[in-house]
């Protein structure tokens, strides 16, 4: 337990030293702030383009605050996931292949403790990036478009965060036995596959973690009362994350030595 904490501290020092603690939140802040700003200035942008047919400009209706907010969150399921997966892909495989894991695991550190520390480090980055990103999106939405119930935004962001955490945990799992690029590819493929399955057959997959982004969007546009409590996607996400961390620990225990 104590040593997991020490390895976690080392992880956080690394994210700070390698500037990950800065640039990932900055990307999330930019992604979040861009959506309300672009939506607000869309008529001006179109006008500046000069060659836009008349009808489009007049027909432009400013979307509601909830829609803008859910669009902002939607940015995180594409570029956001990509950034997170690229950051996480090296977390275990890099240490396995260069041998630094061998040295750390020869100390009284269990593979599970090592993996949990890594996972907690990634979670911290995600928490910071998503929190700041959502805050900036909320700020510009409130300033430019309209106000939103805070609790709904927090709940929607949390649902989105759980979905992103699933993608991170999958990357960690693949990173425990594959090389970094393969781990990134497979985790992107599996999260995209889940999202695709959910959008093709929503009634079949509404209990999977892939339903979380949709749930988050509905929460923002319709409000908490209309959506009600839907625990099954959260529960399945928790199970998936648990499975990924446990699987990564087992595989890390087997593959800790450099080839």
């Amino acid at each position: 337990m104590r040593n997991t904490w020490i390895v976690y501290q080392k992880e956080m020092l690394e994210t700070a030293r390698t500037y990950k603690l800065i640039w990932i939140p900055v990307v999330f802040i930019l992604l979040g702030a861009m959506q309300p700003i672009i939506t607000y200035y869309m008529p001006e942008i179109l006008q500046a383009a000069n060659n836009v047919p008349q009808g489009i400009l007049e027909g432009y209706v400013m979307p509601g605050a909830g829609t803008v907010m859910s669009q902002a969150l939607g940015q995180y399921s594409t570029i956001g996931i990509l950034v997170l997966v690229l950051v996480a892909m090296n977390s275990l495989s890099g240490e396995r292949y260069n041998g630094s894991a061998e040295l750390v695991l020869s100390k009284p550190v269990s593979p599970a403790g090592f993996v949990i520390a890594k996972w907690a480090g990634l979670f911290t980055i995600l928490f910071l990036a998503l929190g700041l990103g959502v805050a900036s999106a909320l700020y510009y939405t409130e300033q430019l478009i309209g106000s939103l119930p805070w609790m709904d935004v927090v709940a929607a962001a949390a649902l989105y965060g759980i979905w992103l955490l699933c993608a991170l945990s999958l990357t960690l799992l693949f990173s425990a036995f594959l090389r970094a690029p393969a781990a990134a590819f497979l985790s992107l493929l599996s999260s995209a596959g889940m999202a695709l399955a959910d959008s093709l057959m929503p009634s079949w997959f509404q209990w999977t973690p892939a339903a979380l982004p949709g749930l988050s969007a509905r929460l923002l546009s319709e409000g908490r009362e209309a959506v009600g409590v839907n625990l099954s996607p959260c529960l399945s996400a928790a199970l998936l994350i648990l499975f990924c961390v446990a699987g990564a620990s087992t595989l890390m225990g087997r593959n800790k030595l450099p080839k």
Binding site: I6, V7, E14, P108
Partner: peptide, 21 residues
Amino acid sequence: SPAFYGWMSGQEYVVFAAKLA
């Protein structure tokens, strides 16, 4: 061929190892 964390200083790594012990 021991591999360390290149972004750490020598002192930091040995402190890290000592804490783990």
